[in-house]
Computed example of a mutant assay.
Amino acid sequence: MSLIRACFLLSTDSLLCCRMYAPLFCVCLAAVSFVAADVVDDCKINSERVSASEQAVLNRLAPLKHKRFETTFKNGTESYTYTFAVCGTVLNGTKSTNEGLVQNKTQNGEITVIGRINDTRVINGTDWILLIYKSGEKYDKHCVKEPRKAMVMISCNKKSLAEGFTIVSEERDRMDECFYLFEMDSSVACPPDESHLSVGSILLIVFAVLIGLYIIGGFLYQRFVVGAKGMEQFPNITFWKELGNLVADGCDFVCRSQPRSSETAYRGVGDDQLGEEPEERDDHLLPM
Rank of each mutant, 00 (worst) to 15 (best):
V269A: 11
F234W: 10
Y214R: 00
V254A: 14
L286H: 10
T94I: 11
A162M: 04
F219Y: 13
R148E: 00
I216H: 07
Q55T: 03
S201G: 04
R5S: 15
E232N: 15
H196G: 07
L243T: 12
K44R: 14
D42S: 11
A265P: 00
E146L: 08
W240F: 14
F25W: 01
S11Q: 12
Y266V: 06
V144M: 13
K159W: 02
G76E: 04
S135C: 04
G200T: 09
R148C: 01
N59F: 03
W128A: 07
M1D: 02
Y21A: 02
V86W: 00
A56E: 09
L220I: 10
V102L: 03
P235M: 04
C190H: 05
G268I: 03
D41I: 07
T120I: 04
V225P: 03
A36P: 00
C43D: 02
D283T: 06
L29E: 13
M175T: 02
V225I: 11
E242L: 15
I211E: 10
F182N: 02
C190E: 05
D283N: 12
K74Y: 08
I211H: 10
E137T: 03
K44W: 02
L91N: 01
R281C: 11
A228C: 08
A228Q: 13
L15R: 08
T72G: 09
P147D: 06
G227M: 05
Q107D: 12
H66Q: 09
L243R: 09
T71N: 10
F179H: 07
N92E: 11
Q258M: 11
S11A: 06
T72D: 13
Y21T: 09
F25P: 01
D176E: 04
T94Y: 09
R5Q: 14
V144D: 14
M231L: 15
